[in-house]
Amino acid sequence: MRLGLVIDLDVCVGCHACAIACKEWNASGTTGPLSDYQPYGAEPSGVWFNRIRHFEMDEYPHNKTINFPMSCMHCEDADCVTVCPTGASYKRAEDGIVLVDQDKCMGCNYCSWACPYGARELDRSSGTMKKCTLCVDRIYDLALPVEERQPSCVLTCPAHARMFGDFDDPDSAVSRAVRERGGFPLMPELNYNPTNTYLPPRRKPVIPIDARPKGGLKESIKQFANKLVRR
């Protein structure tokens, strides 16, 4: 099994609900708390597993805003795991989830240096590295109804821009979406082989913005009549 997320950049509206849901679930989960520093102060900061950036693609009038959620990519070749000197970072053989053992981490930050995606954040209060767990304490919870055994971010997304599934299964929803929509990994040139895959924005018909051509006598009379009539 190779569990991961598919994120649809065409659909994401950038509402940050996935980040909030992630924080809500994981603050009390196995790697919680996710400490906040000065949450109501002048310089609010804190630990998040999921961050949403906003990019603009191309230039006016062809520009488009792309909302860009990012969390751990659960890479196949995860350098964050190999550089870890204590063995706190590990990748599970059974499902490919990359985790940090909070009891072993010494807080040297080295794994965060090795991660190109900024997925790892040090928690100042515990002095340990924290990261997305793919809600490992939720997706296998037999006490939950089957449809709720998914990461919090996926369940909460109001736009259905996030999908969770097994990339090793060619017929899973995530594999099909990647195949049909031309999904791509981020920074493939670094050869980390990230599991999480992004779906590109769709090509849409361009809405003409030029002034409409004059329509002749009939059109002029219509426009004149429209100006006269008070609605």
């Binding site: 706190a88 515990s126 340990t128």
Partner: peptide, 18 residues
């Protein structure tokens, strides 16, 4: 520079990769 130096002794354990 370690945030959690009590685990520093574990840094000897991943000789094969780190």
């Amino acid at each position: 520079h370690l945030a959690n130096p009590k685990n520093a002794w574990r840094a000897m354990t991943r000789f094969r990769t780190s």
